[in-house]
Each structure stands twice: as structure tokens, then as C-alpha cells.
Computed example of a mutant assay.
Amino acid sequence: MKFHLTGRKFSILVGVLLSLLLIATPFLFYLYRLAPPESSEWETVFGTIRSNGFSNVQSFIYTLFTKVILVMLTGIWFLTSNNWWKYAILVPFTMFLFQFIGVLNNEIKYVDEFDFWYSLPLIVPILLFVIYISYRISKNQNNSFELMSEVDEEIKKILSDDL
């Protein structure tokens, strides 16, 4: 027997997986409590986790999973949003992604300090794009309001002529 995903089954499966991922976020946030509080290394079944420039492994895991959760939630929000302004979500997503990379990069002395400036070249084009789209939408919306009022006036004129 073959298992074949139809469009409906696939969207239900994606919805269930996204729901499980969202439900898991509080548990992921508190995962750092499993790490030893005063150790610079932690032996796990996945391998050795080092403090990576932090004072201990617990601080590293806390900071890492905070950034992972922020990247994950804004990524899900962007992918599931149907609004025209969904590209504005890329601004915080980009900042969180740079912060996440900063946590993994042990050469950076201060996490979250300069990430905004590094992400600015990516953020500015996104902001300009969103501003341009909103300008075009508001311009078209004003034109449609003018057209609707003209249509309403014409209908009133036709109805008043018939009476």
C-alpha cells in the first residue's frame, strides 16, 4: 500500500507539524536547565557541547535557544502570512538571524551589540520595498475610492431622473 499525500493531506500535515513546533517552543526555551550550571563542557548523546566563549555551557545553551526560538517564530510567521506586508517580517527575522550567528561565532566578544549594523544592508532594501508597496496600494486605494464615489453619484443621478 502506497502512502500518497494529496494537497489537503499535505496542508494538514504541515499544520500539525507547525503546531507541534509552536507547542514545543516553551520547552525549547527551558532546555538550558538540563545543562550543568558551572561547567565549560557538557557531554551529551549528540556530542560534546562547549561554552563557546560564554562563562558556562548553561549560559551558551540559554542564549542559543533564545535566538533559535526567535528565528523559528519569525520564520514561521513569515512563511504562513498572507498579508502584503509580510516582507516587513524579514526585518526582525534578519536581525534575529544575525544574533543567532553571533552566538555561534566564538570570535565575537559581545553578542547582540553590533548585529543591527551588520544586518542594516539587508534591512534597508526590505524597508524600501515595503514602503514602495504600501505607497502603490494606498495610491490605488485612493483611486478606487474616487471611482466608487463617482459610481455612487451616477447611480443617484440615474435614480433621481427615473423618479
Rank of each mutant, 00 (worst) to 15 (best):
N83L: 14
L5E: 06
L13T: 11
G53E: 00
I126Q: 03
P37T: 02
I76K: 01
P125I: 07
T94N: 00
E113W: 08
Y132W: 15
Y30K: 10
T25P: 04
L73M: 12
K9L: 15
E154K: 10
S19K: 09
L13V: 08
D161S: 15
G53Y: 01
N52L: 05
M1T: 12
Y30D: 12
T6E: 07
Y62I: 01
L104K: 04
M148G: 11
N142F: 14
L20V: 14
L159T: 10
K86C: 04
V111F: 01
S160Y: 08
P121V: 03
L70R: 07
I108E: 02
V71W: 00
E146I: 14
V71G: 00
F98T: 02
E43I: 13
L122F: 15
L21T: 13
L34M: 12
F29C: 03
R50D: 08
I61A: 00
Y62F: 13
W117L: 14
G15Y: 06
I89A: 04
L18W: 11
W77Y: 13
Y87G: 06
E150M: 13
I155T: 09
I123P: 01
P121L: 05
S149C: 12
L70C: 07
W85D: 09
T25G: 02
T6L: 07
T74C: 08
W117P: 02
S138G: 05
E150W: 11
L13G: 06
I133D: 06
E154H: 06
S138F: 15
W84T: 11
S59F: 06
P36V: 05
L147D: 11
K2N: 14
R8T: 13
V57W: 00
Y62S: 05
L79I: 14
P26A: 08
F3M: 11
M72V: 12
S138Y: 15
K156G: 08
V45S: 13
V130T: 09
Q58K: 09
L17M: 13
I126K: 02
D162A: 13
F100A: 00
K157F: 10
L120W: 05
W84D: 10
L64Y: 12
P92I: 04
N52G: 03
I89L: 10
L97R: 00
V103M: 03
W42Q: 04
F27T: 07
S51M: 06
L70G: 01
T66M: 13
D152V: 11
Q58L: 10
N105G: 03
F54D: 00
E43G: 06
H4S: 14
L159F: 12
I49A: 03
K156W: 10
S149K: 15
K109G: 05
N143P: 03
V103W: 00
S138I: 15
T44C: 07
S149M: 15
F98N: 01
G47D: 12
F60N: 01
Y30R: 10
K67V: 00
T44M: 07
Y87I: 04
L22D: 02
I123N: 02
I23C: 09
L13R: 06
S19A: 15
F10G: 05
M95R: 09
F100C: 02
G53F: 02
I76S: 01
L22F: 09
F96Y: 08
S144D: 13
I12M: 10
F114R: 08
T80V: 12
G47V: 08
R136P: 04
I131G: 04
T63Y: 02
E113V: 07
